[in-house]
Simulated assay, not measured.
Amino acid sequence: MPPLIRLEIDGREPTIEELYHPLLVNYGHLTALQVRDGRVQALALHLERLVAATRELFDADLDPALVRGHLRHAVRDVSDASIRINVYQPADELMIVVAVRPPAFPPSTPVSLRSVPYVRPAAHLKHLGSFGQLYFGRLAEREGFDDALLTGPGGEIAESAIHNIGFFDGTAVVWPSAPHLAGIQMLALNPGLEAAGLPVRSAPVHLADVGAYRAAFLTNSIGVVEVRRIDEVALPGDPDFHRLVVSAAAAVPWDAI
């Protein structure tokens, strides 16, 4: 993981005592985003994610304006960065942790995925329980793959360890319907895909189906990357389709913090 530029809790430098809870209690949620020239793509969706997860996990209301203020303070002298905003509740009050790191960029070449029999608990939440993803991701790398592809019973595909995955059947983009996190990039990308004439739908996708698809791609806050292989199945790829997806992702508006 890239080195920290800054870590703030509730808009200020934390004390050692304040760090005990995030270090020792693995219960909370987060959003991850990229800042470019003081702007964030789909910032409203990130804030909505944090508000909804806070209500579900802590039965508490999170003020999105407060989060935005803490983010603005954390990047006050940094124009480009990778950000993680974590939310905890050590006692009766919420704790907002903003970590600032150097900006990240998607791989410049297509990636390969190793399927693993694992689906994240409470998969609709971007929560802190990431042991399974890290464990299987490292195993995949040891076998020569770039990342793990999480699958449920019967080989039903859900998501990669840290991305959503989309498939192209030649006419439409298919997002797997197995339990997964609805990623911000995925949500923000869909309108642009449809505007470009690419229908978008959600449906079950199984490992046995992979060979029937023309192309696949991953999305997260860092960007879009082409998938060249899943297990031993090589995907033909479609350069025109991939250029369209990258273009649609680039067209998502950047909001001032």
Rank of each mutant, 00 (worst) to 15 (best):
D240P: 06
S108Q: 15
F145L: 02
Y213H: 08
G183K: 04
A65K: 10
E56C: 02
D238A: 10
P117N: 03
L125Y: 04
H73T: 15
R101D: 14
A203V: 01
T171M: 06
T109N: 10
R49H: 09
R243Q: 15
T151Q: 00
R72W: 09
A195C: 06
W254M: 13
P14C: 04
P204K: 00
H29C: 03
F241N: 08
D37N: 15
L24K: 06
A104W: 13
A203R: 05
D77K: 06
I96R: 13
Y27Q: 05
A52H: 08
N190K: 15
I83E: 15
L128A: 12
A91I: 04
H180R: 02
L149Q: 01
H206R: 07
T109F: 15
L43G: 01
I165T: 01
V210W: 01
S82T: 12
L134N: 10
A178E: 01
T54C: 07
V200C: 15
A53K: 00
F168T: 07
D92L: 12
S108F: 09
H21T: 06
L23E: 12
I83Y: 14
A248Y: 10
L139S: 02
A216Q: 04
I230G: 01
L50R: 12
L150C: 00
V233I: 07
N220R: 09
A188H: 09
V35S: 13
D240Q: 11
A250L: 09
P153W: 02
A182I: 05
A249E: 14
L66C: 08
H242N: 11
D231C: 00
S130D: 06
D238G: 07
F105T: 09
L33Q: 11
L235G: 05
E56L: 12
A249S: 15
L193E: 11
N190W: 13
D92Q: 08
L47H: 12
V210E: 01
I184G: 08
V173Y: 05
